[in-house]
Design a protein around this nucleic acid. Structure first.
Lengths: 110, 110
DNA sequence: TCGATATTTCCATACTTATCGAATCATTGG
DNA sequence: CCAATGATTCGATAAGTATGGAAATATCGA
């Protein structure tokens, strides 16, 4: 993974609504979720949702496929894996960057 | 780690000069590097470097200590570990997000 | 074909971020 | 105390990002 791509991916996730979107898509798994469903779940107007999905898509973090009238978005785990790989290789001192488990009472606190 | 903090950390790294800065600091290890040394290494004016270091600092990714006239910055591995932990927990489907090793010929390509 | 539905694109606006010179602050050596 | 050094803060400017309504585009069912 190129630094350029890494920056796009990090930037895509560095926004409240997009991070929330990505987390929803991870939960949804391979089935993914329609743009409208995401918009409703997050309480965003359609045009805003579309804007954020475009950013995630441009960063390569999500895939999209049309299903009838809906466009279904799904998390692209390979991209996330590549991002994690880059961070592990380049941004961790080999030191304590082993992804320490988050204490249960801090987990999933939106 | 709170979503709020995660967003600041991701945002801090999602910038060319700051990602480069952080990587230099990781390489430098516990000794860290002075603001001026970083500025020179990256070819940035002092005020720009200071701006970026403030962002990294505010995100909690680096520590700073004064040593005589210099201010020495160092990577905070614990923060990076917490970030990795959050991503692993919340953004990886348990699936293939295991930080796959980057192929040798793509490694460290700035 | 037409109307309804799902989504995107367009546009204007507000907000945030990046840049860098100049001014300022802190520390040290003489 | 003063000049020099290392760094931050200030201020102006340019560039990029977020927001959301309105218009345009695609798809489906009748």
């Amino acid at each position: 993974m190129q630094a350029d791509q890494v920056i796009r991916a990090l930037g895509a996730l560095a926004q409240e609504h997009r991070l929330a979107t990505y987390r929803l898509l991870v939960q949804a798994g391979a089935d993914g979720m329609a743009a409208g469903a995401l918009a409703e779940a997050l309480g965003l107007p359609a045009s805003s949702m579309s804007f954020h999905l475009a950013q995630l898509s441009h960063a390569g973090l999500v895939t999209q496929r049309r299903q009838s009238r809906s466009i279904i978005y799904a998390a692209d785990y390979a991209a996330m894996g590549a991002l994690m790989g880059y961070l592990t290789e380049n941004c961790c001192g080999g030191a304590s960057c082993a992804p320490a488990a988050t204490p249960a009472d801090e987990r999933n606190v939106a």
